[in-house]
Design a protein around this nucleic acid. Structure first.
Lengths: 161, 161
DNA sequence: ACTAAAATTGAAAACGATTTCCGTTTCTAT
DNA sequence: ATAGAAACGGAAATCGTTTTCAATTTTAGT
């Protein structure tokens, strides 16, 4: 955590207005994200910290604020699920990931390559739209859930893929 | 509106449990969506209906329930914005669209072709993941907003694209 | 170290979109 | 017409997130 903090310290120079420093809260949240696999929500993180640090744990408010700072610094990616839930995961600045999201068990799997970046360019010119970022998430069933629901009640939803 | 209703009436056969019919509320919401360009939220629709139909307008609850039904029937696509806001637009069953979303003025523009469908196949095998649907939205600035903010305060956000 | 100013913290309140509850109204089928 | 089922809608509840604000901690200057 110290390493990450030091590596990205200069990024804080870009910040104006709001929270400006890697504060204690930030460091704790960053550490928590490093020690978590998966893509936890702010509340997940706050709860986990409460469990491990009890009264030393930063409050929910601070967790939210820290995540917001880390996202602004580019070392945390915010993943908004289709139901509006927001989850967070560590990245390197400039990186970003897309995910396979299992609709049954909620597990998220990163897709390594981004297939959109090239597309964004052609869109930019075709639609005169300045593309700055994008969201791509694939929903479905992971192997385990797919196997175990094969002989269950058929899904009557009309898929709007 | 009658036409759409009639065209898709058979779809209602697939429904179980919850709301089962194209009720009055549904028809009114569907009509409202037809008469709206853009991608309104449930509250937008409810408000618009309240303005045009006053005490004949369906309540907010009914608007939500109707949209949920129409989405299940596949004739309404739910678009979840990055901030969690949910918006709705009319489609034909089986269709779906991606969007250019202006972060300044909120305008949404449909992208016609879907570039993901092919990708979904290769992902399916590569990750043993059964892809059922996906979300792709591009964020940035539309032409007007891009032009008008050129000499404004530079954006200090670190873009996490 | 000491102090004053600035920034961070966190509990509680506010918020906003959505869902649930539940009594009332409208359909539908007999 | 009547009974039972479904839909309606206002109010209350929920849930994740943001704001408020007083108290605490940190930072900078001496």
């Amino acid at each position: 955590m110290h390493i990450i903090t030091r590596n990205h310290k200069h990024l804080a120079d870009r910040l104006v207005g709001r929270r400006k420093q890697f504060t204690k809260g930030c460091r704790i949240v960053l550490e928590a994200l490093k020690n978590t696999q998966g893509t936890p929500s702010a509340q997940d993180i706050a709860l986990q910290l409460k469990n491990s640090l009890s009264n030393q744990a930063p409050g929910l408010t601070t967790v939210y604020r820290s995540l917001e700072l880390l996202a602004r610094l580019g070392i945390v990616q915010v993943v908004t699920f289709r139901d509006g839930e927001r989850r967070y995961e560590l990245i390197s600045p400039g990186e970003h990931f897309h995910h396979l999201i299992c609709e049954q068990c909620g597990k998220t799997t990163r897709i390594s390559a981004c297939i959109i970046d090239g597309l964004a360019q052609s869109i930019s010119t075709e639609y005169s739209f300045m593309v700055k970022s994008h969201v791509l998430e694939l929903y479905g069933l992971c192997k385990q859930c797919n196997d175990s629901t094969n002989n269950a009640i058929p899904n009557l939803l009309v898929e709007v893929s």
